[in-house]
């Protein structure tokens, strides 16, 4: 403090200089920082495009040999060298859809319970338990699925579904077939359990950001907990909630190990959800190491490219729906 008074006259004269150099330094530091974060942003874009392009390049033989047939045929014949990706694409979409149909409502329920309903002493332990679930490696889910869950499916759940839903006129064919326990429905359920932690912890975090006064106003007007959740909490956090669902969906589309264990890895196209199928990621994981011809390898890499496209299209459709929704509400 006292030194300030003791400054010689010359120091004051130098001040503008010091200021100039300080602002110069700030400017260059600012510029460097800007480049740094721009680089980080571009890095993601570049690696995304590089990955997509290299897979397109690796799969070019498959695309040029089979053309559009690669997308529309169900052949997967390494001996006859005929490859079509319809079965893995279908399996990927169906298992991910089953997973989301189960996971989204359950995650919403978990998040709502933890932020609105549960007594405060219970909230932290349950939240930590969910985060622990997210940390379990997928192969553990796969083994649990195969050794614990599949027998339950084949002895109880699937016989129940085939007798009660199998004879129905329109949905019936979805639930017919022998009780193998291994198949698209089982894979979808295991996937749902895997993505629930991701979706529910995102939902919980964003539900906590809803201002208390908004909720309390609604309660004061006589709303029930459900009305508060549906009309206040959800609209306030919608874009973040959708982001969490996308995160889970992305994981469900690309999940490999757990699906390989319980999906059945069969290249057959069936209407029934109870029958084995195949997914893009599982096919690649299963067959890449022993793919013995160039066109086989190329077809597998092309499958990887298709997974990119499938994920992109699904996310784009979801984004579009979201935009239309917010436009309708006049935001």
């Amino acid at each position: 403090m006292s030194t300030e008074h003791a400054l010689p006259a010359g120091a004051i004269a130098q001040r503008p200089d010091a200021l100039a150099s300080r602002s110069q330094r700030d400017l260059s530091a600012d510029r460097a920082f800007r480049w740094l974060v721009t680089g980080a942003g571009i890095f993601v874009l570049v690696s995304l495009f590089a990955a997509a392009l290299s897979m397109l390049w690796g799969g070019r033989a498959a695309f040029s040999t089979f053309g559009i047939d690669f997308l529309t045929t169900t052949d997967w014949d390494a001996v006859g060298k005929k490859f079509g990706a319809l079965v893995p694409i279908y399996g990927t979409l169906v298992t991910a859809a089953i997973a989301m149909i189960i996971a989204v409502p359950v995650s919403f329920g978990i998040a709502l319970f933890l932020t609105e309903v549960a007594p405060p002493w219970l909230r932290t332990p349950v939240a930590s338990a969910i985060e622990l679930l997210a940390g379990i490696p997928s192969i553990i889910y796969g083994m649990w699925g195969l050794f614990v869950f599949v027998p339950v499916m084949s002895t109880t759940v699937i016989p129940f579904l085939t007798t009660h839903l199998g004879p129905l006129p329109i949905f019936g064919p979805l639930f017919q077939g022998p009780p193998l326990g291994i198949g698209m429905l089982t894979a979808g359920i295991v996937l749902a359990i895997m993505v629930i932690p991701f979706i529910s912890s995102v939902m919980r975090e964003v539900f906590l950001t809803v201002p208390t006064r908004l909720k309390e106003s609604a309660y004061a007007l006589g709303s029930t907990t459900w009305e508060v959740a549906w009309n206040v909490v959800l609209p306030y956090t919608r874009s973040a909630v959708i982001g969490g669902i996308f995160l889970g969906l992305g994981r469900a589309l690309g999940e490999t190990m757990a699906v390989t264990f319980v999906l059945g890895n069969a290249h057959h196209l069936t209407a029934s959800l109870l029958m084995p199928g195949n997914s893009i990621a599982a096919t690649i994981a299963n067959e890449f190491s022993e793919a013995d011809s160039d066109i086989y390898v190329s077809s597998l890499i092309a499958l990887g490219f298709l997974l990119f496209i499938v994920t992109f299209v699904v996310l784009a459709i979801a984004k579009l729906m979201l935009m239309r929704l917010s436009r309708r509400e006049g935001n």
Partner: peptide
């Protein structure tokens, strides 16, 4: 109909990964 190779187009069935995968499926079903 099928031919021979290290992997073929199986007319029917489910696929297990590795000897242990097949062993596990056979024990389960």
């Amino acid at each position: 109909k099928v031919g021979e190779g290290t992997s073929v187009q199986w007319p029917v069935g489910v696929g297990g990964k590795g000897n242990e995968g097949v062993a596990a499926y056979v024990k389960q079903i």
